[in-house]
Design a binder for these strands. Structure first.
Lengths: 138, 138
DNA sequence: TCGTACTGTAATTATATTCGTTACAGTTCG
DNA sequence: CGAACTGTAACGAATATAATTACAGTACGA
């Protein structure tokens, strides 16, 4: 679920860069270097979250529905990849006798939750506009 | 590579909790809820980083080689899972014409690097001792 | 109103990663 | 010497991730 975050950011930055702020899934896919179906899947989530509008049919595609300076990577992260920090596998087992084995899972959960909040805070400090600025500065 | 970090933390906390600060891979595996070979693999890294000493042969096992109050989760993260935040898959292609497609990878790399530093900073604020304290407080 | 150019979505396959298992050589102690 | 350990690698199973294909639905324009 993590590289979809990267794809989402890339797609929105590309839309923000284009004069019309609009492109088809094929154009975006070429720029991102993946296939159109994957882009459509990601864009489907971004549409439901209100970041883009879609137009089906001829001359259709995706159009940026927000101001690049007002959307942060944190917003995108929450829509696409929330919870990705915590490993799927967890150690210990609440049913154990040993307090270490039985409580470790809860404690690590708390630590990962806080870590994730910190990560979101950092992502919240970066807008789509800022990413585009960094790209132009390359 | 991410759940090995959890296993490493769990193992070190368990050692810090035990009176002798020592246990075999089988004992640790049972507590963590995995198999001994996996534990030995993780402990092998921790040994090379100086967190534990091992004794082979009869009555052998792993002994904590540091003070629980002086080792942070950041130290463990750097030893076990550094770089795990960045997705394996990267978008764009430096050879492209479009500045977005060609520079996105570099920019995202920088963003993920900083995010990772922040994550380490947070992990550096938590010692093995502190995790054990949280477990006791459960 | 029909054909073309799009999106939406799901099913299927291919590939990579993660985890468990087994095996066995090497080490230490009694 | 034999029992109880670690060190390490090879193999296979399970799971996660990504690509591909397919096709129904929609909108525009001739």
């Amino acid at each position: 679920m993590n590289s979809e975050f990267t794809i989402a950011v890339h797609s929105l930055v590309l839309l923000a860069y284009l004069p019309e702020r609009m492109a088809s899934s094929e154009t975006i896919a070429e720029n991102v270097q993946t296939n159109p179906a994957r882009i459509r899947k990601v864009m489907s989530v971004l549409r439901k979250s209100g970041f883009v509008e879609t137009r089906e049919g001829v001359r259709g595609g995706y159009r940026l529905a927000v101001e690049p300076g007002e959307v942060t990577l944190g917003d995108i992260y929450r829509a696409m990849a929330q919870g990705s920090l915590m490993p799927g596998w967890c150690s210990g087992d609440p049913e154990m006798d040993c307090i270490v084995g039985s409580n470790m899972r809860t404690v690590m959960n708390g630590i990962f939750c806080t870590a994730e909040k910190r990560l979101e805070d950092y992502f919240d400090s970066i807008t789509i506009q800022a990413v585009l600025g960094q790209i132009r500065a390359c």
